[in-house]
Design a protein around this nucleic acid. Structure first.
Length: 882
RNA sequence: GGGCGUUUAGCUCAGUUGGUAGAGCGCUUCGCUUACACCGAAGAUGCCGGGAGUUCGAGUCUCUCAACGCCCACCA
């Protein structure tokens, strides 16, 4: 054991240990096991992605739960996989193509998909390899991909079923259109940003008389698609104009002035241009009044090449066209004015391009009828959010849910299983391509060219990955529904809510019992981490620099139950690194001192006070840990582990063990206790810091720590007297060290300490711990005196430990003024505390209402303070008198 | 417009049923004592955002105000 490195080097450990786990298939789940199941499916990272801090946090927390439950004896499944990430992946591949000066249209659909598939396959393993570096104990034999055969089958099955039940429909509606992606996107993929623009007031001249009506618009380029001008019928400024005809500037097309209640009189000019093909509200108004929409912009955001658009503008980008139009209108005197106007503009979440509302044929899922059971799930506690406040956000969304636009005009994704007869246009929605048209019998059939929103397949993830709709594997029965979903709040609507919807619809159950929502990772200034702002912290770099376990421990410690965002900086990981090193070195110490020991258990008859004390504390920590891991309180668990290992085991027990190891009578049992506690703590730490604990564990054990039973609260180890005794001893040691430091007494000079105490319990307590005090406070001699002295020994530094007085005679060494100052300060503190205690006790209401134990405790404390104050005052007197 | 979160030591943040505040880092002073300087020892630092209320007692519960942040809706 002497050959262990002086400092923990994670790189010597991590790769080796992970391989050991992998080679032995420790993480493979058995669907036939009799053990109670515990399962998590990973939120599938995008194939194109690289591991970022969000993944690291998410993955760490899942792995902690998984490893903890594995040690608790559950049959555990953590199912890994990746998401094909429709738009994101397609964008990346298109970007690559652009470097070669090509577009996807140059390649054609088949060729483009082939390239994208290769790309995805390459990256698919990369991200999972990165998760492995996190120590993720997932079952790689069950790895899934949202576009693999099984998932695709599930997608088709769900689509066809929903269609047949009328829950999926196709139709022309205004959708959010991203001109850059050339696709529709859903409402929640549209991000509204406040932008400074203009409200342009344009004059549309009357056809049959002099004058004009002035409308207000933020998008003048859509004017050629106008079908009417609408005013509020109650608006006195305009009511006389209703029914008249105006002429669209530049193209001279006639449109009527109509009346509609929806027009707000006090916005803009009170006159609204109606452009049904390019605005959601206008679409509604247009429909109501029976107008046919006029398209003037194409799917790339360019002005259409049709008769409605002036020739010189056709094919121009929408913003270029806007400038030209304004220029022209200004010349013609039809641009009345431009008012600076701040308004919200939709942007594509994926590519940030400005969204155009666009009337087009799309597929939708009717969400309202599907939302009923997901709403009830909260009340029935079939679905529980942690922290619970997220349930409200989820419910609000469910209550106001709108139809979900699921079709995307992309190539990369699940192609919609709808088929059209080329002859008669009959539409057939079915699992496989039909051989012939069911209506006219033609064999010329074409599949719908749209693909599905990525989140459609993600919504099925918890059960599509378990084999649904097939049941052969047994995974569905054993591991579905899953136990918990761990994710960030940013995808509650995108993913969590839709999984619940689909879960209830197709499996009759919530796909998970708990949703644990953690905060988002931010940079040290609280900004969102993003590649574009260059403020990301790469978890792999952190792993290289500090080690995986350091990363995991730090993150676990930083995450809060309330789900607060986490501000990270590089240096924060030193915390975990230092702790790992501490574990390493304490282990090294213990292992070095195990020579000559045996494999027998701790002899509980022969325990010293310190042994009993540390075992007592250990048992309590084990119990607390169980509670914390069981209730997703990761940081409390991490803090507990840290405090016990460092603050109790290392700082006190190991130091005391050094004493006990010197004594042949206590040596053997001390070794056993050291080892028992070290191994127990390795187990406790293992879910959070798997590599280092396994490495150390294997130095002394044949089998992996992976399946070791997690330590539990052990009532037999609880020992209150030992705790009381050690608390006194520790207080005394600290007091003596304080005196030593205050008076600059060098370590080389041994101090003497006299402890004046009662002959009863106090004396017994101190007798049992006197040796620890002597050694750890570097005292030459400890003497126990009976009762408090009548006169405090002169030229002594003193301190009260409970009702006992500890005095250190410091002939010649003591600085009188310094000691007086020290004691005065002490009295000051006591007096302050006393004041508030007295006020309480003197109030009859307190005595009436407060619980008895609180009253008792308060009175005891008052007595204690009185005693101490008295002693200190006596001391001061004797100091002054010399 | 609606909703949520945050405000505690110089910094970053804990604080689970109300009992008189903690950690890490940083800072000060010592120290290479049979693991560890990625260390050990001793210390300093807080009207727990402001105000009001409930209570014997409030960082913790209620109301209110303020600042910052986020989400949803949305006005052409």
């Amino acid at each position: 054991m002497e050959n262990l490195a002086k400092a923990y080097n994670p790189h010597d450990t991590e790769g080796k240990i992970y391989k050991y786990w992998e080679d032995n298939n420790f993480f493979r789940a058995d669907a036939k096991s009799k053990k109670e199941p515990f399962s998590i499916v990973i939120p599938p990272p995008n194939v194109t992605g690289v591991l970022h801090m969000g993944h690291a946090l998410d993955g760490t927390l899942q792995d902690i739960l998984i490893r903890y439950k594995r040690m608790k004896g559950f049959e555990v499944l953590w199912l890994p996989g990746t998401d094909h990430a429709g738009i994101a992946t397609q964008n990346v591949v298109e970007k690559e193509l652009r470097k070669e000066g090509k577009t996807r249209y140059d390649l054609g659909r088949e060729k483009f998909l082939e390239i994208t598939r290769d790309w995805a396959n390459n990256h698919r393993s990369r991200i999972l390899e990165q998760f492995k570096r996190l120590g993720a104990s997932f079952d790689l034999t069950r790895e899934r991909f949202t576009l693999d055969e099984g998932c695709s089958k599930a997608v088709k099955k769900v689509f066809v079923t929903l269609y047949n039940e009328g829950l999926i429909y196709k139709g022309a509606y205004i959708v959010n259109w991203c001109p850059r992606c050339r696709s529709a996107i859903s409402d929640i993929e549209t991000e509204y940003l406040s932008e400074r623009g203009h409200l342009w007031e344009l004059a549309y001249p009357f056809r049959d008389e002099f004058g004009a009506i002035v409308i207000a618009t933020t998008r003048p380029e859509t004017m050629f698609g106008d079908v009417a001008v609408a005013v509020n019928p109650r608006d006195p400024r305009y009511s006389h104009l209703i029914g008249k005809t105006v002429v669209l500037p530049m193209i001279g097309r006639d449109i009527p002035i109509i009346a509609d209640e929806a027009v707000e009189m006090d916005f803009g000019t009170g006159a609204l241009k109606i452009t049904p093909a390019h605005d959601p509200n206008d679409y509604e108004i247009g429909k109501k009044h029976g107008f046919s929409p006029v398209w003037v912009m194409d799917e790339e955001g360019k002005m259409s090449d049709n008769a409605y658009v002036p020739e010189e503008l056709r094919g121009l980008d929408r913003y270029v066209a806007r400038e030209k139009i304004l220029e022209q209108l200004k010349l013609q005197g039809e641009l009345v004015r431009a008012i600076p106007h701040e308004h919200n503009v939709g942007h594509c979440q994926r590519c940030n391009d400005t969204i155009e509302p666009y009337l087009s044929e799309q597929w939708f899922v009717r969400m309202k009828p599907l939302a009923k059971r997901p709403v009830e799930a909260i009340n029935r506690e079939e679905l529980n959010f942690i922290p619970p406040r997220w349930a409200k956000i989820y419910l609000d969304w469910m209550h106001n849910v709108r139809d979900w636009c699921i079709s995307r005009q992309l190539w990369w994704g699940h192609r919609i299983p709808a088929y059209y007869c080329d002859e008669c246009n009959e539409m057939m929605v079915c699992m496989e391509q039909p051989a012939e048209c069911r209506k006219c019998g033609s064999s010329s059939i074409t599949r719908d060219t749209d693909v599905l929103d990525t989140w459609f397949s993600s919504a099925l993830w918890p059960f599509s990955t378990m084999g649904w709709p097939d049941k052969q594997s047994g995974d569905l029965e054993k591991f579905y529904p899953t136990s918990v979903l761990v994710t960030g709040f940013d995808i509650i609507f995108f993913w969590v809510a839709r999984m619940v919807v689909m879960g209830y619809k197709f499996t009759d159950k919530s796909p998970f019992e708990y949703v644990y929502i953690h905060g988002l990772i931010r940079d040290e200034k609280g900004r969102k981490m993003s590649k574009s702002s260059g403020n990301t912290i790469d978890p792999l770099e952190i792993i290289d620099k500090y080690g995986t376990d350091a990363l995991r421990f730090t993150l676990a410690n930083l995450v809060t139950y309330g789900g607060q965002d986490i501000r990270l900086s590089d240096e924060r990981f030193e915390f975990g690194r230092n702790f790992a090193n501490k574990i390493w070195n304490a282990s090294r110490f213990v292992l070095m001192n195990l020579e000559g020991t045996d494999d027998r258990p701790v002899d509980t008859e022969a325990l010293t006070v310190a042994d009993r004390w540390v075992l007592h504390k250990y048992s309590i920590v084990a119990g607390e840990l169980d509670k914390n891991f069981g209730s997703f309180r990761f940081s409390e668990a991490a803090q507990l582990l840290y405090d016990f290992f460092w603050g109790v085991y290392c700082d006190w027990y190991v130091e005391i063990a050094k004493i006990q190891l010197q004594n042949p009578q206590t040596k053997l049992n001390t070794q056993r206790v050291l080892k028992f506690l070290l191994e127990g703590q390795l187990k406790m730490l293992h879910p959070v810091m798997p590599h280092i604990t396994e490495e150390i564990w294997l130095l002394n054990n044949k089998n992996t720590i992976t399946f070791e039973p997690f330590p539990v609260y052990e009532p037999l180890l609880v020992n209150e007297p030992a705790e009381r005794r050690m608390n006194k001893a520790i207080d005394t040691i600290k007091a003596l060290r304080n005196i030593r430091q205050s008076f600059n007494i060098p370590v080389s000079s041994l101090i003497k300490a006299r402890i004046y105490c009662d002959d009863g319990e106090d004396r017994e307590d101190f007798e049992l711990t006197a040796q620890y005090i002597k050694e750890l406070a570097k005292a030459g001699r400890i003497s126990l005196e009976s009762g408090l002295p009548e006169r405090i020994p002169a030229r002594s530094a003193t301190v009260m430990i409970g009702s006992a007085l500890v005095a250190v005679p410091l002939e010649g060494l003591i600085d009188l003024d310094k000691e007086i100052e020290r004691q005065n300060k002490k009295i000051e503190g006591l007096e302050k505390e006393m004041k508030s205690l007295r006020a309480r006790v003197n109030s009859p209401k307190f005595l009436e209402n407060a619980p008895k134990d609180v009253i008792l405790k308060t009175k005891e404390r008052i007595n204690e303070i009185e005693q101490q104050s008295q002693a200190i005052e006596d001391l001061l007197k004797s100091l002054v008198e010399g």
